[in-house]
Amino acid sequence: MHSTLIKPPAVDSSISRIENVLELTQLSDIDPDLFTNTRPLWHPPGARGIFGGAVIAQCLSAAQRTVRRDFTVHSMHCYFVLAGNAEIPIIYHVEHVREGKSFATRTVQARQKGKVIFTTTLSFVKEDSGGKVKVEHTTPMPDVPAPVEGNDDIRFPQGDEGPFQSQRAEILNYESPHPHTKKTRQWMKARGRISPSGGHEAHLSALAYMSDSYFIGTIARAHKLTRYSSSRTGNSKSTIDEEMLKKLLAMDDETLRRVPGIEDDDIKRLQLLREGKDISKEEMKPEVGMMVSLDHSIYFHNPRAFRADDWMFTEMESPWSGDGRGLVFQKMFTKDGVLIATCVQEGVVRLKQPPESKL
């Protein structure tokens, strides 16, 4: 098997890392509405498939290449159908659903081995079609500390080679007994500078890529769930990659606080594991058994009024979880407080179940 249809070219140093990661190849000789990933896609350690943000962003990139330049995406609604395989190329098929005077509609299906793994419908609006007099309002950005240069989160396995940077802020109402009142926050931006040749489309694709960063994970953080098994020697198994667990155990507490998804309770648990203690009898948080995205929607509010390589602030909250699923809302702002996107995601969030008693 090959992860791309064509041999990936050398990394283009004239464009940003995220532009290289999201690069598409148009299969014009077959169909001008067919595209494929130019480079291999990332499979996060412990995940069921490739990083969902990459498929979201590449579908957007493909659709953007089929509309006029004076049309800009304002919404996309996505469904994750099957886990993507990082060892197999993805074929993106763009369908022209509507060509209107003010709006255009596209659907994109991402396929592997003939099966749909992801589908999305996108709507584009003609620039400045709202008229001279408009109905306008926006929610303000909360007052939070600005990002600190050189204090980025530590991400595995990409590290400084990853396509974007992030910094977590403190969870609002973290000690509240009510998960729906908590808000998780972070700063993020594309690494390096997005090239002028990429246009506003490259910034939109980069935002779409980053919008999937620890999105459904908000549920786990709001409920203080863990991903670490109570015993490393028994039948219980950690739900994260074993190599990642080894790296976490080798870190000091201050470094651990810079790892996305690691909270103070997780650090306490890692301390006990590091000391080789049997903590199976300790009172610990429920453990995540399965967490995967089902759908993902993005509403772009000011699609040409931001740069994805400047710091953006995101705030996430969950109004509901139940029946093995959870829902999360996300607001994204520029550093100056302009609301640029609102996102919604539902995902599977299942707890590790206790072993069934044998009668």
Results as ranks from 00 to 15, higher is better:
221 R>A: 14
249 L>Y: 08
238 S>H: 15
237 K>G: 05
227 R>M: 08
219 I>R: 05
236 S>W: 12
229 S>I: 00
224 K>M: 12
251 M>L: 10
224 K>R: 14
223 H>V: 02
244 M>R: 04
248 L>M: 11
231 S>W: 11
220 A>Q: 07
232 R>E: 11
226 T>H: 07
243 E>C: 09
234 G>S: 13
248 L>I: 05
221 R>T: 15
245 L>Y: 01
235 N>K: 10
235 N>V: 07
243 E>N: 12
218 T>C: 07
250 A>N: 10
243 E>S: 13
251 M>C: 01
252 D>R: 07
222 A>P: 01
233 T>A: 02
239 T>S: 12
251 M>V: 06
229 S>G: 10
237 K>D: 03
221 R>G: 01
245 L>W: 03
235 N>W: 15
245 L>H: 03
231 S>L: 01
233 T>G: 02
218 T>V: 06
239 T>E: 04
240 I>F: 01
238 S>I: 00
238 S>G: 06
243 E>Y: 13
247 K>D: 12
219 I>T: 10
247 K>Q: 14
229 S>M: 04
248 L>V: 03
241 D>W: 05
249 L>F: 09
234 G>M: 02
219 I>V: 09
225 L>R: 05
221 R>K: 12
224 K>N: 14
236 S>H: 09
230 S>L: 14
225 L>T: 03
243 E>V: 13
228 Y>L: 09
217 G>P: 03
220 A>K: 07
235 N>R: 14
223 H>M: 11
230 S>A: 14
252 D>F: 05
240 I>G: 00
230 S>K: 15
249 L>H: 09
233 T>M: 12
239 T>Y: 04
241 D>H: 04
250 A>E: 13
252 D>S: 02
232 R>F: 14
241 D>R: 01
252 D>K: 03
226 T>V: 04
246 K>G: 10
237 K>E: 09
246 K>R: 15
251 M>E: 05
224 K>A: 15
239 T>W: 07
248 L>G: 01
217 G>D: 13
242 E>L: 11
225 L>S: 04
229 S>H: 13
238 S>Y: 04
222 A>V: 12
233 T>H: 08
220 A>E: 08
241 D>S: 04
227 R>T: 12
249 L>A: 02
240 I>A: 02
238 S>C: 11
248 L>P: 00
217 G>T: 05
237 K>N: 07
223 H>L: 12
247 K>I: 00
227 R>N: 08
244 M>I: 11
243 E>R: 13
223 H>N: 15
242 E>C: 02
